[in-house]
């Protein structure tokens, strides 16, 4: 950890590089940060909101979906990019020494800046739908932190596995897809039957995303669920960091 801190300038440069080169040769540039979850929200509004008539806790469905997609898009893109980070940075990892974890932190950091941008759009949307901002949004930074820690943890675990076996790289998007449906991204958690609720709240993202909506729209908080999800997040993070550091000893030999 001390080493990561000692290399914080490199972390800054890696994030800066990615932000800088990211949207070269695209016509819309950084607008994609916002467009992607917006388009997804549109798709889900048509199919889930209008066709399937999924309830949305009294919030207009497009806003409901977007508010779920903002944290979800952050999480899933951070995990899929940072999870493949080690092999993507293979040439660098085998030629220069720095704490490997820096790669994951940098890649998640880049997505974090995206998240900030999509927040702006979220607030504009809320304004359009006449949904007022409440003091409960002060909880958002905590939830963002939780999502970040979770993304770092899962990415670390996966990248060590992917370095050894590329099978995990193929598995990752499938898992993320399943994870999205197992999280209250496009439907409210209360649709989950009561007897499955406990199991459901073991999914740490359920607490994050529900918490997100509660904080934004002033819906009641499910404190028990949020505490459970926080605890699961910390456990997963500790396990992943430990497992990554153990694997790290020989990663360079097999990458």
């Amino acid at each position: 950890m001390r080493e990561v801190w000692a290399h914080r300038e490199l972390l800054y440069f890696l994030i800066w590089r990615d932000l800088k080169v990211r949207y070269k040769q695209t016509a819309l540039g950084p607008a994609w940060v916002v467009l992607q979850p917006l388009l997804m929200a549109l798709v889900f509004t048509v199919f889930m909101g209008w066709l399937a008539r999924v309830p949305s806790d009294g919030v207009p469905y497009p806003l409901f979906a977007y508010a779920g997609l903002v944290p979800w898009t952050f999480f899933s893109s951070a995990v899929s990019v940072a999870g493949n980070g080690l092999i993507a940075h293979g040439p660098m990892v085998t030629k220069v020494y720095f704490p490997r974890m820096l790669i994951h932190l940098a890649l998640v950091g880049v997505r974090l800046t995206d998240l900030l941008v999509s927040f702006v759009v979220l607030f504009v949307l809320m304004l359009c739908y006449g949904v007022g901002v409440r003091p409960s949004i002060l909880l958002l930074p905590v939830l963002v932190l939780q999502a970040t820690l979770l993304a770092v943890g899962i990415a670390l675990w996966f990248s060590a596995r992917i370095a050894r076996r590329r099978d995990y790289a193929t598995l990752l998007p499938v898992l993320l897809q399943a994870w999205m449906f197992a999280s209250p991204v496009i439907y409210p958690a209360r649709l989950v039957p009561e007897r499955w609720r406990l199991l459901y709240s073991l999914n740490p993202l359920a607490g994050v995303i529900e918490g997100f909506r509660s904080a934004l729209f002033g819906l009641p908080f499910d404190w028990a669920g949020m505490v459970t999800s926080g605890a699961v997040t910390l456990l997963l993070l500790a396990y992943s960091v430990g497992s990554f550091l153990r694997a790290d000893e020989n990663l360079v030999d097999i990458i």
Binding site: E9, L10, F13, R17, K20, V21, M92, V96, F98
Partner: peptide
């Protein structure tokens, strides 16, 4: 190490320097 084709020479000097361990 780590030169990025889309970055300018100036930017790459900083990036490469940071990667090899310069402050």
């Amino acid at each position: 190490m780590g030169f990025h084709p889309d970055l300018t020479g100036r930017e790459n000097v900083y990036l490469n320097g940071a990667i090899i361990g310069m402050s």
